[in-house]
Simulated scan of single mutants.
Amino acid sequence: MIAERTKKVKPSPTLAVDSKAKELKAKGFDVVNFGVGEPDFDTPEHVKEAAIKAIRDGFTKYTPVGGIDELKEAIIDKLERDNGLKYGKENILVSCGAKHSLYNIAQALFGPGDEVMIPSPYWVSYPDQVLINDAQPVIVETYEEDNFMLQPEVLENKITPKTKALILNSPSNPTGFIYSKKVLEKVAEIALKHNIYIISDEIYEKLIYDDEKHISIASLGEEIKEKTIVVNGLSKSHAMTGWRIGYAAGPVEIIKTMTKIQSQSTSNPTSIAQKAAVAALSGPQDCVEKMRQEFERRRNYLVAGLNSIGGISCKMPKGAFYAFPNISKVLGKKVSNNQINSSMDLSIYLLEQAKVALVPGSAFGAEGYIRISYATSMENLSKGIERIRKALEELK
């Protein structure tokens, strides 16, 4: 028999959408894929060269479970340079992607009877990683009028004696919004008052627009730093999704426990990818800025296009590479036998009729919205906007 706990977990909706889009493409359909959260840029050349050198140098064996010292030092330098955070090597764990880092945290911290606060809209894996570790996700709603920012008083009202942690994601997937310093200070105050951990997912920190600033909650003081595990990686900032390098920085006891767990699951991250990550973090960063500027250009074009479509309204995201348009005015409409009663209905309709793949807001705990990734070409954005426009014009 399959383990009972696995029945609580759903497959990743975003990966399922991407898989369906690729399946249709393989059958010869021209599909515009707005579903996947993956930069369409190539990994920077200096990063690839570092990996090639590692192979040629025979750096192809096991490494220490938690990552090579050279990479830990590069991460320590990055965290101090970019975030004002000081850590030692004993505070760092390198894993097989930021998702793996988050899973290790869930394994190390959560158990039966624990509650974990998750603001919605949330990244799809947060609740399932809590559930598979026999803890209970507690969803804390946020609202468009607040730029989907967690309101501290709402958070405090949800906290119980069982509350173990809060998961924060800024910039956010799926909304693209960023937490202000003022709100982070209030959240930190509440976390310290109730002795709860903060898991701060900062994977999109390099993709920020309109001169906004990323602030890590761990940088707000030594007390909150000791209650925070910062998660980051190279996938989004350096177009390294397939290289699978993420990392966590936090209190020694937690990092030590996570490392022990990793030693019994994956062992070390790929040796070659670790050398590439050193080059990514320590080498020139102009490639990151070029990607950021292009994403900003695409964002502006996409949001303007979406807001020109009847039935859709979209606030301007401040980070990441997602738009999260409100489609509530479309709900209840129909064409032929297609009745659009939910974001899932609309997503299926657009995939089948317009050959546009996107993710329903319900996957992120936010009915009445859809997520569109603009990590694709301007040509695809233009084509996709027009296909969505025509498909929605058919609805009455």
Rank of each mutant, 00 (worst) to 15 (best):
I229D: 01
D210S: 12
I203C: 05
S216E: 03
L207S: 11
K227W: 01
I215Q: 06
E222F: 03
V230T: 10
K227T: 10
I229Y: 06
E222I: 07
Y209A: 06
I224E: 02
G233K: 09
I208A: 03
D201S: 08
I208H: 00
E202T: 14
D210C: 06
Y209H: 09
I217T: 07
K225R: 15
K206M: 05
G221K: 12
D210E: 12
L234V: 15
Y209P: 04
E222Q: 14
K225P: 06
H214F: 15
G221R: 13
I229W: 00
E223W: 11
D201T: 12
E205I: 09
L220H: 08
E222P: 02
L234T: 15
H214Y: 14
I217K: 05
E205Y: 12
A218H: 02
L220M: 07
K206R: 14
I224F: 03
E202N: 11
I215P: 00
E223Y: 06
I224M: 09
E223Q: 11
G233R: 07
G221M: 12
E223A: 15
I203S: 03
E202S: 14
K206F: 02
L220V: 13
I208V: 15
T228Q: 03
D201G: 05
E223T: 09
S219D: 05
I208L: 11
D210G: 08
